[in-house]
């Protein structure tokens, strides 16, 4: 829920465990307490998508048995798989453009055990009309970072599990050309298209591909997007890395972005997501300002974490409870 600063302060002072997203000008005014946060002024609220530097988005984590908060740099980020609770949820926030976010983006898919530990989160950002800086906050210590990730480890009671899922409006057409890349990278010059080496930027220009459409990779029916950031000087850069040995195709064109989004949301049928974050590219390309997409309220982010870093996707987490025997 979106709250004013005094309400957020009250919740912290009451000892609530919180996940908070807001503009840096608000986060820096918060007192120490059991919270983590990241910067963004964009939100999907109960009132619809909006940009505000006057209010904070707060999720109360009232399902935790206990929590711990730690921060990590690029050299130790993958300690998260060792330091998390055995039955828990890891909530991870990383600053946009930081080395730790890049390291996580490139290497997470190959980290042993990562899929055994539900890990959800987002990349913090800033007002796109400014040259802002993305930050994350460890409220337990009262510190912020632009170069570290902050993780909240949430221990879940016995009989409860975290399930992370996503809503992705994109899919591929299996008859379209297969694109492969040589390495795990955030920018490329060369790739192969149906086995033939090409300069990727030239291929995009020649075929007139709409670069608002991401590359998609089929992970056993779950489509993972890689969005194109820029095509310039013979180089194509991405918001999340491409990986070697993965088959990509450009997503099938989506005519009515917002309508397709609503359709997918209805299909997903999540009842009570405890956290959701939606990509800034969905917000922009889907004109989500003013649009309501219940029950998925939360920050609009510069990348989403559903185990690995993904983008142009809505990621959410639900807490499932074992049925009584």
């Amino acid at each position: 829920m979106l709250v004013k600063l005094d309400e957020a302060v009250r919740l912290i002072n009451e000892g609530k465990i919180l996940h908070i997203a807001a503009d840096d000008s608000l986060l820096r005014q918060l007192p120490k307490g059991k919270w983590i946060g990241g910067t963004t002024p964009y939100f999907i609220s109960e009132e619809g998508g909006l940009m505000t530097k006057e209010r904070l988005f707060v999720n109360e984590i009232d399902y935790a048995e206990e929590i711990r908060v730690e921060s990590y740099g690029k050299y130790n980020i993958f300690q998260i798989v060792e330091e998390c609770y055995d039955n828990g949820l890891t909530m991870l926030i990383m600053p946009y453009g930081s080395l730790v976010a890049t390291k996580y983006a490139k290497e997470a898919p190959e980290v042993e055990e990562l899929l055994m530990h539900p890990t959800v989160g987002w990349i913090s950002g800033f007002d796109l009309t400014t040259n802002g800086t993305a930050s994350v906050y460890d409220g337990t210590r009262g510190v912020s970072y632009t170069d570290k990730a902050v993780a909240m480890y949430i221990k879940l009671p016995e009989g409860k599990s975290a399930m992370i899922n996503m809503i992705n409006i994109f899919s591929d057409d299996k008859t379209d050309p297969v694109i492969r890349f040589y390495d795990n990278d955030l920018s490329v010059t060369k790739c192969t298209v149906n086995g033939q080496e090409v300069t990727f930027s030239e291929y995009i220009k020649k075929t007139g591909i709409d670069t608002k459409m991401p590359l998609v990779a089929d992970y056993n029916g779950s489509y993972i997007n890689t969005s194109i950031k820029d095509v310039a000087d013979g180089e194509v850069s991405f918001y999340a890395p491409v990986f070697r040995n993965i088959e990509y195709r450009f997503a099938v064109n989506v005519d009515d972005y917002a309508a397709r989004f609503r359709e997918k949301i209805n299909e997903a049928g999540a009842r009570n997501p405890v956290l959701s974050c939606n990509c800034i590219l969905n917000y922009q390309f889907g004109n989500l300002s003013g649009q309501k997409i219940p029950p998925y309220t939360g920050p609009v982010t510069f990348g989403e974490v559903a185990y690995q870093l993904i983008n142009q996707t809505l990621v959410y987490c639900e807490i499932l409870e074992e049925e009584p025997k």
Partner: peptide, 19 residues
């Protein structure tokens, strides 16, 4: 055999093992 789960992590694991 093709099976797609409603659980993202399970699909990711299947894909990883297949690879």
């Amino acid at each position: 055999l093709r099976y797609t789960s409603a659980n993202l992590a399970f699909n990711m694991l299947i894909s990883k093992m297949q690879k």
